[in-house]
Simulated assay, not measured.
Amino acid sequence: MRGTTMFSTIRRRHFSTITAAVALTAVAACATTTDAAKSTDQPTPTRISTAYELPGDRVYPEGIAVDVRSGDTYVGSYANGAIYHATPGARRAEIFLTEGTDGRKTTNGLKVDKAGRLWVIDSTAGVAVYDTATRAMIARFDVPASTPHMVNDLAITPDGTAYLTDSTAAVVYRVTPAQLADTAAHGGKAVLTAQFDLNAELAAHETGTFTLNGIVTDDSGRYLLAVDMTAGELYRIATEPNSPDPIRKVAMHGGDLKHGDGLELHGDTLWAAHNTTNTISRWKITDDGATATLERSITDASLSIPTTLVRTGDQTLVVSSQFDKGGPMGPGTPTNPFTVLTVDGI
């Protein structure tokens, strides 16, 4: 509970200075596209619709993951830590793990690895790993209680290594397959350790400011891309040992990633959810991850604070969090049911 209180306080303080500006931006920019999109020949029209509903009247979803073996998706509740499961074509998700399972207070980033294990981040504690077939917890990795933290998102490279961002510590944790197997075989609990420290690389910011958020891996697993949501910058992190250039700021053309939350990378195309501006952007990644060029961006108030997104088949599924309607970003009443959206044209 102490960790939850700290996180809520930090998050509300971070967003309180931009709430009014965001409200005006969202209304004024509703259903707009960037000049980059307009300059393309006959861009695909944007259409936003409901993919499926989530059960519960105060879900406030935050993360989403897809199991590439089946196309099933998993969504987590920031409000209570529950996990929801939806099969392809389902109009309503079902509860996969009930709220408070294994003491989880909240759910942030989610990912399903190639072995069918579901990785679930609790921002106040760390990450737990579940067998999707049995729903049993395999292992958990916690941040030391004395360390100020807000574990946020994760990426899993092709070799099965997981990398997790910490938004207040500005570090990236690592869990290797060997560490996962060893922890599962010896009590199921271990401590997260930082593999990359980006504090010296990030733009100057006040202590406690949210920085690192979404993180993805390229197809080869040679590098990661992580967003600094406050500065709007993107960082390339080399995973190869003894890299001569382990961390570099990506050169960005045509825009930025301010308020950048969840990321999705397929080949050389990167998608980003910009939460408080109700924006989804698409970028071309070139030069082995050194350059990002904005290709298209849509802003629409109906996205209702999109926290993350995932590509499955030809769909772009976007989590509509409604954090600003009685959730962690402000008072109010959410519109029920909570939904995962499908966004065409991005």
Rank of each mutant, 00 (worst) to 15 (best):
S320H: 09
A290N: 01
T316Q: 13
E295P: 04
F323H: 12
I285Y: 05
T312N: 08
Q315E: 15
A290R: 05
A301L: 10
G289Y: 02
T286P: 11
T286A: 15
W283Y: 03
V310A: 06
S304K: 15
W283H: 01
S320N: 06
W283E: 04
I280G: 02
T312E: 08
I280F: 05
T308L: 11
D324S: 14
S320L: 10
R311Q: 14
P306R: 01
L317W: 02
T312F: 05
V319N: 04
Q315M: 11
K284N: 05
V319E: 04
T316D: 09
D324W: 09
V310F: 05
V310T: 10
T316S: 11
W283Q: 00
S281A: 15
P306H: 01
R311C: 09
I305S: 12
A301Q: 09
I280E: 04
E295C: 08
G289V: 03
D300C: 06
T316E: 09
T291A: 13
A290E: 02
T279E: 13
P306D: 00
S297R: 15
T316H: 07
P306L: 03
S281V: 13
L317G: 03
S297P: 06
K325I: 10
I285R: 02
T279L: 14
D288Q: 08
L309G: 00
I298A: 04
R282A: 15
R311T: 13
I280M: 02
T279G: 14
R296S: 13
Q322T: 13
S304D: 12
S281F: 15
T307N: 08
E295R: 07
D288W: 03
S321I: 04
I298P: 03
V318W: 03
Q315D: 11
E295G: 04
V318Q: 06
S281Y: 15
Q322C: 10
T279R: 15
S302K: 10
R282V: 11
L303I: 07
K325N: 05
L309R: 03
R296M: 12
T316R: 10
T312Q: 12
D314G: 15
G326Q: 08
A292K: 02
T307C: 09
N278C: 08
I285L: 05
T291M: 09
T307S: 10
